[in-house]
Simulated scan of single mutants.
Amino acid sequence: MFLLQHLDHTIKKIKSQTANLLTIINLSLGSFALVFIIQGELRTSLLLITLAAFFDRLDGMVARKLNITSDLGKQLDSLCDIISFGVAPSLLLYQAVLSEFGFAGAFFTIIFIACGAIRLARFNVSESPGFFIGLPITAAGCLLTVSFLFVSLLPSYVFMFFILILSLLMISTLKVRKV
């Protein structure tokens, strides 16, 4: 009887941490993307950020499906998202094209990260049923990451405007329907 109770308790504990584990995988993929950016392996980092987005989507679905949402999980998700969808995509684009603009390129890279952090903090302290206020950092980071594929096709200055527009959309009062 004791063994069955212990086993049941262990299974419940594992179940309760499933979404957080998926969130940590998101963080790991975003962190590895940063390592590959530093090493100049930009296409590999693109893949890793894309995988991080998949795990970010999966952690939320699992948390809702298993009814294991928590304040801890919400905070952990935001901390991981700033790495995977704030720092990694902006540094990817910085390495690919924005660095040629010197200080201005670095400044817009940091603006993107700062606006992403503001967006996440605002999300964590407010409730908006059915919609987000401002473009979610995951969407902004994924759009920035995908823009890397167009670096050889578009003039460099386009990316300066694009990163600025995404930054402003994250901190805007635009209502984005939750999917």
Rank of each mutant, 00 (worst) to 15 (best):
M1T: 12
F2Q: 13
F2D: 13
L3I: 14
L4S: 15
Q5G: 11
L7M: 14
L7A: 14
D8Q: 14
H9T: 12
T10P: 03
T10A: 13
K13H: 14
S16C: 02
L22C: 08
L22Q: 00
L27K: 01
S28M: 14
L29N: 03
S31K: 05
A33N: 01
A33W: 04
F36D: 05
E41L: 11
T44K: 11
L46D: 01
L47C: 03
A52K: 01
A53E: 00
F54P: 01
D56E: 12
R57H: 14
G60L: 10
G60H: 06
G60A: 09
M61G: 12
N67V: 11
S70N: 07
G73R: 09
Q75H: 12
S78T: 05
C80A: 15
I83Q: 05
S84L: 11
V87R: 00
A88P: 02
S90I: 00
L93R: 02
Y94L: 07
Q95V: 01
Q95L: 09
A96V: 03
A96F: 05
V97M: 08
L98I: 04
F107I: 07
T109F: 04
I111M: 13
I113Y: 04
C115Q: 03
I118K: 03
R119F: 05
R119V: 07
R122D: 09
N124T: 11
V125A: 13
V125P: 06
V125S: 15
S126A: 12
S126Y: 04
P129W: 01
G130Y: 08
F132A: 07
F132I: 06
I133H: 06
G134Y: 05
L135R: 00
P136H: 12
A139M: 12
A139C: 07
A140N: 01
G141A: 15
C142N: 10
T145M: 14
T145L: 10
F150G: 04
V151K: 06
L153C: 08
L154Q: 10
P155M: 13
I163M: 10
L166A: 05
I171Q: 09
T173H: 15
T173I: 08
K178Q: 13
V179A: 08
